[in-house]
Write a protein that binds this DNA or RNA. Structure first.
Lengths: 350, 350
DNA sequence: ACCGCACCGGGAACCGGTTTCCATCGTTGT
DNA sequence: ACAACGATGGAAACCGGTTCCCGGTGCGGT
């Protein structure tokens, strides 16, 4: 039995070389593979490596130019189901392509995000993927463009995933899902069931994702020739609690509506319990629809009609595109389609 | 306006030195902080840094011994709500302590896990956190102990989070939540409502978490002096679909029970829709309880009685303990408590 | 027997930083 | 006026690897 955990100090390639009675170059070569080494030497080196339980320092290899590439993933909160699915896609694809995957939650703090991106630039990450919507302000564009430039000059690429695109010419890859289109289709479906007063439980007023879905809501109304009541457009955020509160307030205020469309399945879930708490039946008394098609949507009661967003695929695509490992997505700006999945939570108005 | 994105090649400290007309050492000192540099020199250097948009290579710094420490987080699937919350806790605490956070999903593949841990050893990660239950076989202990040893000899620490502990003496930190105790309390609660035939929707037969909860189920029965019918112990996995299928089968087979305890809220969710699909009322016809207290538990209908597990705190604790940044948790083995949160899904038997 | 070539392995330069050691310079003390 | 001293900054060694360049073998060919 070999004493492997002799001391806590990690051994260097020189230790191995010394023990095997060869030079450091030789050790590097037998470990590296593609170089002729006599089998006797190889054996001695391998034995020394085994006895010392040696692993080459990845950071040193990286400096020497033969490191494992790295990719960074920045989101607001890994806890949201849709983010989690994107993260999953990113992580899978990254490791499939032999990349390490760094992750960071910003908790919505812009400064934190900035700091992290700077950090990733220092790490020489192959790509930095920013995910999740935000306010599309000039200040945002300016700041993000600066990130993109500085990352580009450091040789890595910025990917915006579900975020407002920058102007043309920015060295950035944008991958979006079609918020407006999805909401349009969903609300069209609800309208087709005869509903005319549809409450919309939106997100923050300037949040790009929320805005897109809101636009779809509006567009569907216009296409149908109905004039949406502005009082039916409520704003909160994308949490379950927001949906719950918004719905309670709407009910308390005596707002009139026969259907509710939530900007998110989470919001819909909160709204649903608020509805239940008020003694209302869904979809008997009021119809309800969500957005995202998180796995739980099926288990709400009634099963939630919603629009499916291919989050995992989105994550995968983001890393493939960023890493240039794809021929089928050379474009700098992709827009993924969505489709509504109808279940039991919206019913024709009687 | 300075031309920053001139070329794609990153600039080195020597480029900056050249441009500022000083030596590389001086640049390093200016950037490093704690060394007297004349303000004129400092200004020149800073200007050069700005013009070149220079950031020191983090890998090189790491080799020189002044790098950002890193911590790795290994789980089966980031998509599970409880895992996501742990991940969130880990990530928050890690960045709070100035660590970078690497993540890896194993998809349940042992070889993948092994490879990743080896990779982290090479990265000189400060700690590797393995999370999620598994089969507590001799082979598992052997393999994991080897990981622990080799990580320890490389100066980093292995943390087992919700995983079967190894024998004594292994250089490992174990943090568990009390599966048996939680299940015991939950099932005791259900029994106290008068239920005597309680269906248990468990996980994989040899999965440590599933096993712990099963033990709690059994122990609660014994404490009450009731003999659980072995036919009521079903095995699947921790997914929503598993709960759905198991419940359907149980119903189809005509199993007799007045309550259902699921090993997981996800499983409970699937079971709940199966119950609904069969036209059964919960809790009118049958009571239902889950485990984990994921956020959605409140929004199921009826709101799910379940046991709360402090997942986020668990993650935080894992990194604090691993990094030794705590005086209040010097122990090598922590067991976090849980508590049952009663909502509307279990009712006294009539 | 001699030349040349493959094969193999050592030395040194390099990757991009940090830090130790030392030389220089301008001041100040007596 | 001259020695000592504090403030600066450069050269070189080091961190732990990789790889280029070369020199010493042992082999076969003529």
């Amino acid at each position: 039995m070999t004493r492997k955990s002799g001391s806590a100090s990690r051994s260097t390639i020189r230790d191995v070389a010394l023990r095997a009675g060869v030079s450091a170059s030789t050790v590097s070569r037998v470990l590296g593979g593609a170089y002729p080494v006599s089998s006797a030497t190889r054996t001695r080196v391998m034995r020394a490596v085994g006895e010392l339980d040696y692993v080459a320092d990845a950071r040193a290899k990286a400096v020497a130019g033969v490191g494992t590439p790295t990719l960074a993933f920045v989101l607001e909160d890994i806890t949201g189901p849709s983010f989690a699915h994107m993260a999953h896609g990113v992580e899978r694809e990254a490791t499939r392509l032999g990349h390490l995957c760094l992750v960071c939650s910003t908790e919505g703090d812009v400064q934190h995000e900035l700091d992290f991106v700077e950090m990733m630039r220092a790490q020489r990450a192959a790509a930095v993927i920013l995910v999740g919507g935000g306010a599309d302000t000039p200040e945002y564009r300016e700041r993000t463009r600066r990130m993109a430039d500085s990352l580009a000059s450091a040789g890595s690429r910025l990917v915006l995933c579900g975020r407002p695109p920058l102007g043309p010419g920015a060295p950035v890859t944008v991958i979006e899902y079609d918020n407006e289109g999805g909401a349009y289709a969903l609300v069209a479906h609800v309208l087709a069931q005869g509903h005319r007063r549809i409450l919309f439980l939106g997100g923050k007023p300037d949040h790009s994702t929320a805005l897109g879905r809101e636009r779809g809501y509006l567009a569907a109304h216009r296409a149908r020739g109905v004039d949406p009541d502005p009082a039916l457009l409520l704003h909160g955020d994308f949490t379950r609690d927001s949906g719950h509160q918004l719905m309670r307030r709407a009910l308390a205020e005596g707002l009139e509506f026969t259907a509710v469309v939530a900007a998110t399945d989470m919001v819909a879930a909160g709204a649903l319990t608020a509805l239940h708490e008020a003694g209302l039946d869904v979809p008997g008394d009021v119809s309800l629809a969500g957005y995202d098609d998180i796995p739980f949507a099926r288990d709400l009661h009634p099963a939630l009609t919603t629009v499916h967003v291919p989050y995992q695929e989105l994550g995968r695509l983001a890393v493939r595109t960023a890493l240039g490992h794809t021929a089928d997505a050379p474009a700098e700006h992709l827009l993924l389609g969505t489709h509504v999945v109808v279940r039991d939570s919206v019913r024709a108005v009687s």
